[in-house]
């Protein structure tokens, strides 16, 4: 109680800007711990490689440039564009766009940091799912779709129309690859009861439309810059644009193998934590044996108003009531005050 008594209340700002949540941002609720761990390792490895690559380029201007362009993606997402012929509107994700200006590795870093901030500040995607989101969105668009689709299609100095076509193709590939990964991760986590084929069809169907929209938006910005200041686009192509395709493919295969192996192990024993506890403690769930427990169970069965009911429902209702009480007590004890700007001395 001393903690509650001692503290002074301040209103704190919580930031959730607009409804920007879409199906590409994996939430923590949709993945299991082993899948999250594998993806986190993959994402960390890619970030480390990107860091080394960017350092090797020895361009100190990349530090503010990637930072400001990451912030640009946020700002650009605030204005929705209307999608022609559909009456709906969308916002940009920005992977291929950043890669066209910064090169794949620096763009990967910029987009990863955008995803991390979206998770930490905007509740867009989960904290444990960060690895999944970085691989699904940043890696697929900057390290796969850009070098393998955009670059070959656009060529060295493309026309505005060619830029548009290359953008649409690259963004569609990026979004579809990401959607396949989302489906695979959700399925491996054992969250969805849908069959893999149905789920995959659903996800890729939705993301086909999003991919085309993203491609049109990317093409519109790239076309504008190509008309107004083409040197910006040509500067990007001089350094750091080479992604070793072989390495990317090898990495993807390795990640898939590790992920597949781990998830197989996880599916044979769905609860990794319980398994490890069992290993350590030598027993599974704590036994509910003993005379006292037996007597209690008898009394419980005798006194329960609805003895036929499963523990789940009564457990949920009971626990919810306790949580509501905790909330009420906390609200009573911690009175809120309006925001006051405090100047630190």
């Amino acid at each position: 109680m001393f903690l509650l008594r001692k503290q002074k209340q301040k209103e704190r700002g919580l930031v959730v800007i607009g409804k920007r949540v879409h199906t590409m941002h994996m939430s923590d609720g949709l993945i299991s711990t082993p899948v999250a761990a594998v993806a986190a390792v993959a994402a960390a490895a890619l970030i480390a490689v990107a860091g080394t690559r960017v350092k090797k380029m020895q361009r100190s201007d990349l530090v503010p440039l990637t930072g400001v362009l990451g912030a640009f993606v946020f700002a650009a997402q605030m204005v929705n564009f209307s999608i022609p012929g559909t009456g709906s509107s969308g916002h940009i994700i920005g992977g291929v766009l950043l890669a066209a200006f910064l090169g794949p590795w620096a763009a990967f870093l910029a987009l990863s940091s955008v995803i991390i901030i979206q998770c930490l500040l905007f509740a867009d995607g989960g904290l444990l799912a960060l690895g999944c989101n970085i691989v699904n969105m940043a890696a697929m668009s900057c390290l796969v779709a850009y070098p393998l689709v955009y670059k070959p299609l656009a060529g060295r100095s493309p026309s505005v129309a060619r830029t548009m076509c290359a953008s649409v193709a690259a963004c569609t590939v990026a979004l579809e690859a990401g959607a396949c990964l989302v489906a695979a991760e959700t399925k491996l986590s054992g969250v969805t009861a849908l069959s893999t084929g149905t789920f995959l069809l659903l996800m890729t169907g939705i993301h086909l439309a999003i991919g085309v929209g993203e491609g049109l938006a990317t093409g519109a910005v790239l076309g504008f810059v190509r008309r107004v200041k083409p040197s910006l686009l040509d500067r990007g192509t001089q350094t750091g644009h080479k992604v070793p395709t072989g390495a990317v493919v090898a990495f993807a295969l390795a990640a898939a193998a590790i992920g597949g192996g781990l998830s197989l192990a996880a599916s044979q024993d769905p609860d990794g934590l319980e398994w490890s506890v069992e290993k350590v403690a030598g027993t599974g769930e704590p036994e509910s044996g003993g005379t006292a427990a037996a007597v209690a169970a008898k009394v419980q069965n005798g006194t329960a108003a609805m003895p036929g009911y499963d523990n789940t429902l009564s457990g949920v209702i009971g626990a919810s009531l306790v949580m509501l009480t905790v909330w009420g007590v906390c609200s009573l004890l911690t009175r809120r005050r309006p925001v006051a700007v405090k100047v630190r001395k």
């Binding site: 400001v68 362009l69 640009f72 700002a75 650009a76 938006a217 076309g223 504008f224 810059v225």
Partner: peptide
């Protein structure tokens, strides 16, 4: 939108 985002992009750079 492309012109506006492009303009913002140039200003960012």
């Amino acid at each position: 939108w492309g012109a506006m985002a492009g303009q913002l992009f140039l200003r960012s750079v």
